[in-house]
């Protein structure tokens, strides 16, 4: 049984503590940003930013909504990035938690393909070509602590635990939220370990709120590489 996150966007206040807590725990540097006519910042995920709260203003049914979407790696159940890399020393799945972990060995790999393979457009390349993204705060989780973003969340928007418990929580929240928001939905529940609850159409929150089909298309190169890397794949499954 893996661990999962439940992100209840209906409780998120976009305080962005999760963004800072992530940087704090991981000792990640700040980026130089500009105000682009929105509170949302930095403009995108990066090698130094694993978590980013997307903020969108939408008029829905004549009412203004400010939609918040704390974006992060979904730690996919079957992770395309892992398959694409095909090298468990670079990208592996932690057996105990289901965390998809990028290591320093991603440097020099087919990083653009790995990025392209992600249905949620998450991994980002560093200046030296290493890839980085959310690591589920594996060190914390292995030591019985919550991931930094979950621990710091004031309202219960961020949740973490055993997958079965998290799925149950997500379903019960969906049931409650649906009463007032018929469009409410859980996103890609079966495929990911980071389950989002949204009250409106997912694409209004963020382009990559749900898995993008385009990103799932496996390029020829990727398919080829897979053929030549059976061993490492097996290793990764063993993990």
């Amino acid at each position: 049984m893996s661990k999962s996150f439940f992100v209840d966007t209906t409780l998120c206040t976009a305080c962005r503590a999760c963004q800072v807590a992530c940087k704090q725990w991981h000792d990640l540097p700040a980026e130089e940003t500009k105000n682009r006519g929105t509170y949302e910042n930095p403009a995108d995920l990066s090698f130094d930013t694993y978590k980013l709260v997307r903020m969108r203003e939408e008029v829905i049914g004549g009412k203004l909504k400010w939609l918040f979407f704390p974006e992060q790696c979904r730690h996919c159940v079957e992770a395309p990035c892992l398959d694409t890399a095909g090298d468990a020393s670079a990208i592996y799945k932690d057996a105990a938690t289901g965390a998809i972990i990028f290591t320093a060995n991603t440097k020099g790999m087919n990083v653009d393909e790995i990025i392209e393979s992600c249905p949620y457009n998450i991994p980002r390349k560093g200046p030296d070509g290493t890839l980085a993204k959310c690591d589920m705060c594996l060190d914390r989780v292995q030591n019985g602590l919550l991931p930094a973003c979950v621990k710091t969340c004031p309202t219960g928007a961020m949740n973490f635990g055993e997958r079965a418990d998290i799925v149950a929580l997500a379903k019960s929240r969906l049931f409650a939220v649906k009463k007032a928001n018929p469009k409410a939905a859980l996103l890609d529940t079966d495929d990911v370990n980071v389950i989002y609850l949204v009250a409106e159409k997912p694409s209004l929150y963020h382009k990559f709120a749900v898995a993008s089909n385009a990103a799932f298309d496996i390029t020829r190169q990727v398919a080829l590489r897979r053929m030549f890397t059976p061993l490492t794949n097996i290793v990764s499954r063993l993990l």
Binding site: K23, Q24, A30, E32, T33, K34, N35, Y39, N41, P42
Partner: peptide, 29 residues
């Protein structure tokens, strides 16, 4: 603090779309 400045780097003025149109002001300028 760089982490906080990253989130809100600059002083801003918030205004309605109607006022921006009236004054010919574009978002982010």
């Amino acid at each position: 603090q760089p982490w906080l400045l990253e989130l809100q780097p600059q002083v801003f003025v918030e205004m309605s779309e109607e006022l921006a149109k009236l004054k010919g002001i574009k978002n982010g300028e």
